[in-house]
Amino acid sequence: MLELRLVQGSLLKKVLEAIKDLVNDANFDCSATGFSLQAMDSSHVALVALLLRSEGFEHYRCDRNLSMGMNLGNMAKMLKCAGNDDIITLKADDGSDTVTFMFESPTQDKISDFEMKLMDIDSEHLGIPEAEYHAIVRMPSSEFGRICKDLSSIGDTVVISVTKEGVKFSTRGDIGTANIVCRQNNTVDKPEEATIIEMTEPVSLTFALRYMNSFTKATPLSSIVTLSLSSDLPVVVEYKIAEMGYIRFYLAPKIEE
């Protein structure tokens, strides 16, 4: 028996909006520690890892480890029917081939039940070691979203370079080039507006902007985004989910052959 009750149902709505265009079908894994997902896009160039810890749910019952295969587009369609202030409860009986999403309005005067068929998805999970990164950039997520959007109107790849001056985002295309430098500025009065750079050594990597723009769909989840970079490793773009966990996007670099 699985019953997960999330008072802040809007978090789950935002998570699906963030991943439904990157990944079509995925397995949600439920265990005592929490509700998680790891999936790659169809080209295996990007990977998303989601964790919602059990403590973040008002009620978390998961009798035994369970993996539920879902079509994320269909799941997003059902979650769109939940109000932003609704409480969302996920329910699944052992051995059943459906999952139920229950939406309760804050005043409990409207209760909705949406039932969706589960799918069999044989997804291979990748082992992702916790790594030491050459550079970690923490910046306003709205700023990062704006940069990716602006640069993608000029070119289709972005070079992200971190030096002691700051982090530089560069692109080039038929009409010309663009360079955006964000300097460290932890003097701002609001912490969520600070740009903080930790660097052990300079790093410069090239990525496809199409995927970066897809990741920024997670912006509504957190006012801060962190970019973790190491030479010749995928970048990790992480949006923390308030007191619950995180959504991490990994993107393989484009490397000079």
Partner: peptide, 14 residues
């Protein structure tokens, strides 16, 4: 020529 790498080239299947 820039070659787009894949995630499976960096992390092993569990």
């Amino acid at each position: 020529k820039l070659q787009q790498k894949k995630m499976t080239g960096f992390f092993d299947k569990r």
